[in-house]
Design a protein around this nucleic acid. Structure first.
Lengths: 202, 202
DNA sequence: CAAATAAGAAACTAAAAGTATCTTAGTGAC
DNA sequence: GTCACTAAGATACTTTTAGTTTCTTATTTG
């Protein structure tokens, strides 16, 4: 009987597929060459011959997926909005949608492989931090009200947390955070945003 | 001779200290009980008796540090600004400063333990994504200019990338992203921000 | 000072990562 | 079609690392 034996691009595809499945279900920390080989129905040496590390395999598997379903290069969205706001909504919607291919697999991976207990502890910790962040902003807003710059402190929490979340992201991505970034954040983002909601001449 | 042998809080401190050193130099993925034991000059069984997993040890070690140097509970900043912008700058400055204790150790950890090659590959990938994001926004801005909503498309890249970075953070932190969040982002953050810089009646 | 408790050393077990060897299927040249 | 070459896949092996066990002894507590 003719024992079929995959090779080349064929095999590569099977490996990438298997890799993504593991990433989605167990996360990056659980991605091992042995598991990939098993799931792709091949053997360890094959994987070791072709790829350096589980991490680089993960990157390639995700890039492969992105290439494959070109489902929404973000800059190819057809813009049909009748206003800036409408167009922006289209773009951000498409962005979150296509994050399923890239971001979800890719970013969540980092946090998978953390036990249930640990995850709970982490959540609790983040909740504590969030409360502190909110307090800090509230005090700033109250002072602004006293000064007459704002008419109230009633902002959605998401808005109040925006600066911290943005800065945390930049830290994570190792983007620079200096006085230039902070000024931009305050003068061009936060103040206009707050004034838009709570400005005196609304 | 009296062989000193640490125990209790004393030992705990040494272990936390060692844990943080490893986190800072090698990252979470390289944090093992064996290494901690070695660096803290104790033995594996001691660590195994006290802590569940390297991850939970990491969390505790960081929390310990935060408690120890109370250097700047964010909501205890003394606000001395004479304007909303000035106060906000104080808060964000303090935030980034105290990130050294929490965030830097904590967040960067996720990406450490990735080989040099892998790290480069990752960077390249993110750069590609950034370019796509910028293109998308540029097209939106150009349409807005044609429509007369904006006077130009000359925005700092950081501003253009804001929505994507914010959404990515929320994804990472497993915060919800639905139409409510997107509307908030567009109507209350992006549009006011863009108008502030490029609005027609400036 | 005696008893209880917990630290530390060392050796051990189990499991996982990584490697070497060999057989054989698929590919292409002649 | 045959032959040579390349790469897949099986198997068994070595090495490393995680996790455990046992035992000794320093330190605390009463």
């Amino acid at each position: 009987m003719t024992q079929t034996r995959r090779r080349g691009a064929d095999l590569e595809q099977a490996v990438y597929q298997a890799t993504r499945e593991i990433l989605n279900t167990e996360g990056l920390s659980q991605l091992t060459f042995a598991k990939v080989a098993a799931k792709a129905q091949t053997s360890k040496p094959v994987i070791y011959r072709h790829w350096e590390t589980p991490f680089s395999l993960a990157l390639l598997a995700i890039q492969d997926k992105i290439k494959a379903d070109n489902h929404g290069q973000l800059d190819q969205v057809v813009l049909t909005g009748e206003s800036l706001a409408a167009d922006l909504l289209l773009v951000t919607q498409r962005f979150t949608a296509s994050m399923d291919a890239f971001g979800k697999t890719f970013m969540e991976s980092w946090f998978e492989g953390v036990s249930h207990d640990d995850s709970a502890q982490l959540k609790q910790m983040l909740a504590k931090v969030r409360k502190i962040d909110l307090n800090a902003i509230d005090r700033v807003l109250e002072r602004a009200v006293t000064r007459g710059e704002l008419t109230g402190t009633d902002l959605p929490e998401k808005l109040k947390l925006l600066p911290f979340e943005w800065l945390r992201y930049r830290m994570l991505a190792k983007e620079s955070i200096g006085s230039a970034e902070l000024r931009l954040l305050v003068d061009d983002i936060l103040v206009p945003t707050y004034l838009h909601r709570l400005g005196p001449k609304n």
